[in-house]
Amino acid sequence: MIRGAALMAGKDLRLEWRSKVGISQVLPFAVLVVLLFAFALDPDRGVLERATSGLFWVVVLFSAVLTVQRSFAVEAEDGVLDALRLTGLSPAAVYLGKVAALVVQLLVLEAVLALAVAVFYDTTFRGWPLVVGVTFAATLGIAGAGAVYGALAARLRSGNTLLPLLLLPLLAPVLISATRGFEVGFGREAGPGWPWAALLGIFAVVYLTLGAALFRPLLEDT
């Protein structure tokens, strides 16, 4: 299963590198949204500073929807999904491979976004370990849930427009926990931040387990 997952992840990352959709479209979109919020809220720097954590994760979620859509659109093209099923790769391997590739792409996106909020919002990252821990756990949860719903949406008519409606409400706990964790990490909120990271970790583990176990029906014709 690990070999299959690594093969899928490598293929997805190579596809992304060749097509440059993430770098040329998703990444500029994310930075543009950060910039637009800076323009909209700049007259009141206090609001911008207070909203930085939430804005960061909202932009991550919107960008994640685009990344997940792209990840499963390539499998729906030209009968590729049939070919994947004919390989005999286990559905869990396909799922974990997709998740791994999504995690790498989202981490790159988040690194660029962190730089963007540091520049445009004057954000200082004080609690680095917490910020990094929250980011990894949240990204794993987003990718884990995104791969399940991405596969589901890819099988449906109008799936592309349906995906945000399915995925974003589900990721609300991630948005809340990651935002609170960042607030502590940025030093804007007192109290322990690691419980938020732990909550995100639990969400990620639950979704990864469910996804790996239940991915088979999402790949099958019924």
Binding site: R18, S19, G79, V80, L86, G88
Partner: peptide, 17 residues
Amino acid sequence: RRRVGLLGHATFLYEDL
């Protein structure tokens, strides 16, 4: 599935690779 080969109307190929 692993023991059969299917050539369909679709190419079963990734266009960008």
